[in-house]
Amino acid sequence: MSLQDKYKELTDTAGSIGIVNLQVREQDNVLYIDGEAPNGAAKDKLWDVYGKLDPDFRSGDVVMNINVSTMAPGARATVTTQTSNLNIRKGPGTDQPIVGKAAHNDTVTLISKTNDQWWLIRTNAGEEGYAFAQYLSPQ
């Protein structure tokens, strides 16, 4: 069975929940899926389907790079760490000094995107710095 068949439900779901700029390509036995989700919930749904088709993400035959289009400068995002505070750093990298913290479930303002991993943000307390995008969920 080809990868496109194996993950047909995944790519079909991507189409039906409004993933834009969707690109699905197979290369060296890996299916690369790229696109932009309209919101965090759509991205979450897609990951649930992926987890169903490939339990525990064991096969290593998909790379699904889905960004959320509402992650835009000026938007607000919730800090979705496990439980701990989110470090706010002087520069985009974990080797950069910590200049502040945002609490779990706090809301911050997105200022600008450095890359897929780092955003310059501002906390409600007015602290500005770089935070890891993985722990920011758009509202």
Binding site: D28, V30, Q134
Partner: peptide, 24 residues
């Protein structure tokens, strides 16, 4: 509970492939 969040982060880094040998 952490696996999906970790994977969601790693998949945006544009790797060639992710070989998950983690004990869950």
């Amino acid at each position: 509970a952490d696996l999906k969040t970790l994977m969601m982060g790693l998949h945006t880094l544009k790797p060639k492939k992710i070989d998950n040998q983690l004990t869950i």
